[in-house]
Simulated assay, not measured.
Amino acid sequence: MSYLIEPKSYKPLLDLKQTELGIKKVKEFFQQNLSSELRLRRVTAPLFVLQGTGLNDDLSGIERAVSFPIKDLGDARAEVVHSLAKWKRVTLADYRIAPGYGIYTDMNAIRADESLGNLHSLYVDQWDWERVITADDRNLDFLKNIVRHIYAAMLRTEYMVCEQYPQIEPFLAPDIFFIHSEELRRLYPDKTPKERESLITRQHRTVFIMGIGGNLGDGKPHDLRAPDYDDYTTPNSDGFLGLNGDLLVWHDILDCPIEVSSMGIRVDRETLLRQLTLSGKEERKELYFHRRLLEGSLPLSIGGGIGQSRLCMIYLRKAHIGEIQASIWPEEMREACAKLHIPLI
């Protein structure tokens, strides 16, 4: 079901022409800085992959991929990617990327089951990145260090935007607040996960919530994760489970947090087998991606996705992701946005 957050007294700080130019500036500047911070080279990525290879990301496991038959392959079906979490790891192996280096790409996806609103669209565009690591890097300190490098690129981008558009004032916190989802649950035991996210991000402005996917002390996960990319069951140095997390930024215009990145240290052979068993997905061991990982032909890695339209929405102080990208919206949402002075593309 679609849902519209109605901002109070909203007036865009940039007109349509300024917005289009701002989108271009943000995307070009941020990806250059991300590449430098994490030592990533750009690669070309697919829009779709063959069904049944295990390469597509099934997100939380309930979203349907958009698919179509391929005439020249005997009507074998292709799926539009949800993300490139597993494809990138295969690419690291095929390109023989050395530890400490990685790749990034423009990922474009269609998520037909998305609940449409200010932050969610049928069309998803993000920078998908992946970097080769060593066994010694599979720890919480390394994860936090990578997150800080990404945030450094975000802070520099904010400075550029504020220099280009003086009407936009700095808003990002100088530092990231790290917290594990179990710590967050204990802090707000009577709240839902989304309510906890809102409370902690309102307080600290920029938050990285760790340990997404595994069951917490109440027997429920903070949020769902597919069992075959992020490692959410390995114990970490803080005494909790999980080597992954979500990066959230407080957005004053909508009075809510915006998740700009989901990322983590990826599963190794042991963790993959454990998480497939825990999730009841052991049949995936026979798929192409999983076979390659289990036989040891894929490198250890860390990776994630960073929302392009969401970042632009945050930097350019927009109230709706439809002010950044062209997509399809319910007619009643378009009418409501027009009354709220939210110009959807």
Rank of each mutant, 00 (worst) to 15 (best):
L16R: 15
V49F: 11
G74A: 05
P12C: 14
I97G: 04
I328E: 08
G102Y: 02
V81A: 02
P69Q: 09
G305P: 00
L311S: 12
L172W: 06
I306Y: 01
A319N: 06
R202G: 11
L340Y: 07
R42L: 10
I133N: 10
G74E: 12
I62Y: 10
N145K: 15
A173N: 06
K191N: 05
L276Y: 04
I146G: 00
H290M: 08
N33K: 14
L4K: 02
R266M: 08
G239E: 02
Q167Y: 08
D125M: 12
L59M: 12
N236L: 09
A65F: 03
S309C: 10
P166G: 04
L224R: 06
M313S: 05
I62E: 10
D57N: 14
E283V: 12
E79F: 05
R42P: 03
A45K: 10
P99Q: 11
P99M: 09
V124L: 05
E182K: 01
G239R: 11
V124C: 03
Q308R: 13
E6P: 06
A336G: 05
G74Y: 11
P235T: 11
E270S: 13
D137G: 15
T234C: 02
K220W: 09
I5H: 04
G52I: 09
S297H: 07
V66H: 01
M313R: 04
M1W: 00
R266Y: 07
L224G: 04
A98L: 10
T233G: 01
K71V: 06
A338Y: 01
C162I: 06
H82D: 04
E259F: 04
I253H: 02
M333Y: 00
E270T: 15
I133P: 05
K11T: 14
D175N: 12
N145M: 11
I306D: 04
G219E: 14
L294H: 03
I324W: 00
I253A: 03
Q325M: 14
L187E: 15
D268H: 07
R334D: 10
P7Y: 10
Y288T: 12
F30K: 06
G102M: 03
P299A: 08
Y188N: 02
L311G: 13
Y165E: 14
Y188H: 04
T44N: 15
W129L: 08
H120F: 14
Y10T: 01
I302K: 13
A112G: 07
L216K: 08
G211A: 08
I253R: 03
F208M: 14
H251I: 12
K71S: 07
